[in-house]
Amino acid sequence: MLEVFIAFLKLGLTSFGGPVAHLGYFRTEFVERRGWLDDRSYTDLVALCQFLPGPASSQVGMALGMKRAGWPGALAAWVGFTLPSAMALTVFAFGVTHWLALAQSGVVHGLKVVAVAVVAQAVMGMARSLCPDRLRAGVAIAAAMLVLLVPGAWAQIAVMALGALIGRFALRLPQGTALAQDSFGIGTRAGAVLLALFAGLLLASFVVADATQSPLLALAARFYQAGSLVFGGGHVVLPLLQSAVVPAFLSNDVFLAGYGAAQAVPGPLFTFAAYLGAALPASLQVWGGWGSALLMLFAIFLPAFLLVIGALPFWQSLRTRPGVQRGMAGVNAAVVGVLLAALYDPVWTSAIHAPADFALAVFAFGLLVFARWSPVWVVLIAAAWGFTAGF
């Protein structure tokens, strides 16, 4: 458990660039460096979390922690990855007018640029192992094109479904590719209970949101709904959160200030919920804002935990069947295409604005791929470069 916590705390302190970059950091740390699982198992796990609503990178982290150290490991992974950004955004909520320039600082821009190198490394490594033939390479390229031409979370789900169909009926895997079932330490009965609990809480949240006399409890129910019903990651959840808190509890200016700060911290964007909880009016705050921040954070992440841990035993059983293996091979190729598209938008488009940006991205890529430096040191170098160069 301590090993899991320390590993994810390090990532929670350094993983800038959004969920796509997080998946690249995870792959480098847990597939290449630590060898907790192989590339194929990792990408299968990514595919599962892409199909589920909620924060995909956090769900991948919970599953990795579960695999390594059971239930305590799943909790340790979530706490380690979430704690740094949640604390930073909570503190920011207490002094929002003083730190507004943080999101536009040169340090943060340098960290966005290094995310380009991290995602590029992930695309290259995953393509090498998951697209070894023309059919799967074609699926990856087509998936990237479709996602770029038809943006939105549903397009990503559609291309993975098409990849599954192509893989299932057109792909021929060589003999000897039987896939051993990974152990995540949870049985199907426990998984079914968690999935039923998720569905029951979701239904109850609609009743609580309308019937309770407690504004704080009603708001927590709305946050649970947001975490349950949103595909496509943190940015997609923002409209739901905005409708929940603006203008009833917060002004739009305060909401947008927090959103800007959320871009400047590492870790999952869903920790924006902690900012909103801490920024609530004093009459609704618990423990000086820290308690309400924790409540909103728990409410928005709880469905992600119930869904991914509950789905794992069924997913692990299905993925060992030959037909499912072929379908998953097609999905894996499509995931590479989705990651390739994300390398351009939003990772490249939000970071590369000048030749100096591209130079830093190339330098970071060289350190990661050829010098094989730890991503932590590369991130620190990029932050220092951004600060001294005055991006």
Rank of each mutant, 00 (worst) to 15 (best):
A278W: 13
V362K: 13
F305H: 09
V4Y: 00
A257V: 04
R128D: 13
S292C: 06
A101F: 14
L111S: 02
L179I: 06
T271Y: 11
W78S: 11
L100K: 13
V60K: 02
I352V: 15
G73K: 00
W78F: 15
L340I: 13
G95D: 06
L2S: 11
L256F: 15
R222Y: 00
S283P: 10
V362C: 15
A274L: 07
D182M: 14
G310Y: 04
W377P: 04
W290S: 07
A304N: 12
H353D: 12
G167K: 08
G187F: 10
E3G: 02
G260R: 09
Q325M: 15
L307M: 07
M66W: 05
A279P: 04
H22Y: 04
G54R: 02
F358M: 13
F305V: 05
G227W: 00
L240V: 01
V308T: 11
A248E: 15
F358I: 08
Y344K: 08
Q263C: 08
L312D: 10
L250W: 05
A192Q: 06
L284G: 13
P375S: 04
V237I: 06
P84H: 06
R222G: 00
W154C: 03
A69K: 01
G54C: 01
S15K: 05
V207W: 15
G232K: 02
T388C: 13
L307K: 05
F358C: 10
V150L: 15
V79S: 10
A273M: 07
E29F: 00
L48T: 00
A88P: 08
D182T: 11
W287K: 07
A257D: 13
A178V: 14
F272N: 05
A329S: 14
S58C: 03
G291K: 05
H109R: 14
S374I: 03
L217N: 00
